[in-house]
Amino acid sequence: MSPSTHDQLHTLYRTLLVFATIGAIVLSIGLVQFVYFERPGEETGVKARIVGVYEYDPTTRMTIGPDRSEFPRADVFAAVVDWSSVPSQLVVDARWYDTFGSMRGEVGPGHPTDLSAASIVPVDVPPNLHFVLPGRYTFVVERLDADGVPVEVLARRFVLVDRS
């Protein structure tokens, strides 16, 4: 093997190792980001109570019918939260996330006592659309830290919206 050939191959090898180092830094930043939003030791053990998920009438702003976990796409639905189940000193909110992870409805943040008038949390129809998007929806009641970052899920509920 000639020295120049050897050098060229090792230049390629070293270039790849440099790229891998950059890659490792990128992945480390990702890990730091994950730990920042999923902080260890934030577990308080507090549980919030979700009364149920119901069909929702936007005109009367009232829920209709029984607690359900599956809805046709033409229906609007809402979760009902029992805010009295959450200690009053906590700062909390409640959010709906659609199947793509986009937020589709929110109440809070605030202390549970401030949110008692907002126990019904409806899901929002996306702008310019007539129906909610189909797929798996996640409803969460979250505890926020002093910076307003959600750090703990106090209650969670999944709902399936059919395509038809």
Binding site: Q33, Y36, E38, G101, R136, T138, V140
Partner: peptide
């Protein structure tokens, strides 16, 4: 991840991994 993590950037990062 959806059952265990806080929805938002933390969950998104986990799904990206």
């Amino acid at each position: 991840a959806q059952r265990a993590l806080v929805p938002g950037p933390g969950l998104d990062t986990s799904l990206a991994f």
